[in-house]
Design a protein around this nucleic acid. Structure first.
Lengths: 224, 224
DNA sequence: ACCTGAACACCGTTCAAGT
DNA sequence: ACCTGAACACCGTTCAAGT
């Protein structure tokens, strides 16, 4: 009887390597090592040459891993929603993907035109067109939304969102507040640090999207 | 007569190391090598131990270099401007710093709570208070603006802004458009790619800030 | 075509030893 | 206190050799 677990003799392919990388990156959170060429090699019990036969280099592998995760998250936006609501779902999909795979947040700002980033631009662009925006106005609106999402992704990836239970979260915020206070005891900084403990990341992220959507309302629409 | 150029026998200090790092990072653009511990060592003609005596590790050095650059750029915001105008100047200051030092853009999203990022939050927070925003509303507004700026910084750092003259810029955009088309020939992607050639990065960045400032207008003000 | 694995040219960091 | 520089434990990538 054959075992259900994938045998190492299964043919190597790019997608298998990418999935192995995702597994290793997901395990990074629990401090179980890092994604290196060598960790991929041991995971798939193969040599470096075999991996380079399917993947150009480690950068491409990281980009492909983030793309794989986001492509899944952004695939199922219902097409019957109005554009504002769809854009909120795009944001939530990305935010929750990063909640599940924090490394995606850091990866997205590493290379500006990697596949996952192009996918985000494209997904946003599609909805902006449905809003009647085109040309330079669409570019301004799209880059505002995309850059906000990318910046927030990087910020939340290593932030409190990453900490699962409340105990660790408090400890993280306490450490952060102390670190800030040590460097800079300005009143504004202290206020931000204290506010960090009270707020809801996901809600704050959605607030940001709503602020931008509201600001976009004044942009000129396409006469079409 | 003593030479005007700094002698290597000058006492080593953190700021001297940070300035050497900035110099090396600035030279990276012209393909003149990378910032590594060893490049800092040769630049200052010293050993690794000497550097570790002043700086905890390479991450801290990179963060300190970005902080040094931004601190200079954000120092001279006139205090008599109205808050909206001041926030535009903050954005422009960061944008132009990245124009002069592209590596700053990438650095800002590498570690979420590094000194330069705290500085940005603080500078924004100060102006939001002047706008009458406080508590959760200030946090939402501040994180929207900060995350947009950070995302845009990372994006523009390796984008067309980095290319000085028009010829290289066109070549960059042509390559980018071709790379995109090869991966994804969706109409929306092609439209974005073509629009990339026509637009003005700096203007688009400012459009983003204006969209967010407009969206913030609906937030509840502090009754103070 | 696909895979192996030794070899290469790097990294950041540590630390005993010097002044 | 401040600095030296060898040594260590890693990296990603290449490539001749195997099947």
């Amino acid at each position: 009887m054959k075992p259900a677990t994938p045998r190492r003799s299964e043919a190597l392919s790019k997608i298998r390597i990418v999935e192995a990388a995702i597994g290793i990156l997901d395990a990074e959170n629990s401090g179980a090592g890092e994604l290196t060429l060598r960790s991929v090699m041991t995971q798939l019990s193969t040599g470096s040459g075999a991996i380079y036969h399917h993947v150009a280099n480690m950068d491409e592998l990281r980009a492909a891993a983030a793309d794989e995760v986001l492509r899944g998250a952004l695939a199922d936006i219902p097409s019957d929603l109005d554009a504002d609501e769809a854009l909120r779902l795009v944001g939530l999909g990305i935010f929750d993907s990063i909640g599940a795979h924090p490394w995606v947040g850091a990866q997205l700002t590493r290379k500006p035109f990697q596949p996952a980033v192009v996918l985000i631009w494209k997904t946003i662009g599609l909805q902006l067109r449905r809003l009647g925006l085109g040309g330079p106005a669409a570019m301004s609106a799209g880059s505002t939304l995309a850059n906000f999402i990318l910046g927030a992704a990087a910020q939340y990836a290593a932030g409190p969102a990453r900490v699962a239970d409340g105990k660790d979260r408090d400890a993280f915020l306490k450490d952060l507040g102390e670190a800030w206070s040590a460097v800079d005891d300005d009143a504004v900084v202290l206020e931000i640090a204290s506010e960090l403990g009270a707020h809801d990341d996901r809600q704050q992220f959605m607030d940001g999207i709503d602020i931008i959507l509201r600001g976009m309302k004044a942009l000129p629409r396409q006469t079409q």
